[in-house]
Amino acid sequence: MRNMCSVLHYEFKMQFQRLAAWGVLLAAAALSLLDNFPSAGNLARLEFLNEPAYFVYRIVSLDSLVLLFGLMFLLAGRIPLDAKTGMKSLLMASPLKKWQYVLGKLLGGFLYVFSMLCIFLFLNTAVYFIGTPFKISLIECAVPVVKAVLASFIPVSLFVSFCSIALPGMIDIRFFYVLAAILFGFNAAYVGSAEAMPFYLITSGDLARLIWVHPGWPFVDMGSVIANGCFLAGSGFVSGCLLFLKHRFWRSE
């Protein structure tokens, strides 16, 4: 357990020191504020921007996708890089077990993605709260933020981190990029509607409807919400398990 925590701690700390990740976070934050800052122009363009829940919904369903896409690129190299630099051979020569290494990497990645998403949302919401021209209470902002963190960020972080770390350990990293780009691109291009969203969407699936619903379409299809959550969490878990099942990945124990 201690070994696994060491791997997890190293992964988490190491990722936070990467400048590229902060660059992506700043770019995503700039984009989201250009799109959603409660300026007169944006308030005239977006009908519900005066509702904090709508603001959080937009940040989660649209703008966090850019951050996640960048983090996916950065996390995907974690296991191939260890193999390339010889670090994996060194670790295999130590008493570290396969499950400790894999679980440390996966959980480190998960905590990292989750933390970055939370920082992104808190930063945007703080700017919205300070910059808004009308009066809103802190609780009005806090409730959708908590909903977003619990209902959306946990499954989304699980999906992005586990898939990005585990799959390039088994398939060519470039092939993984192509597959991920198709899914992210589809998510970006999909236009919302009153009907249930496809379950395989990452951030704009029906899980996001737990944060805010359009007053014109006030229903929430719980079946679709559960399907979206199961897809995200399930795909993450399955990707992680595949790495455990690959015998040639580690020395024989």
């Binding site: 770019a27 984009l31 996708l65 850019v66 960048g70 690129f73 780009a181 691109g185 970006a188």
Partner: peptide, 10 residues
């Protein structure tokens, strides 16, 4: 990749 996605989103 990020520029590609941002263009798609905007």
């Amino acid at each position: 990749g990020v520029i590609w996605l941002v263009i798609l989103l905007t």
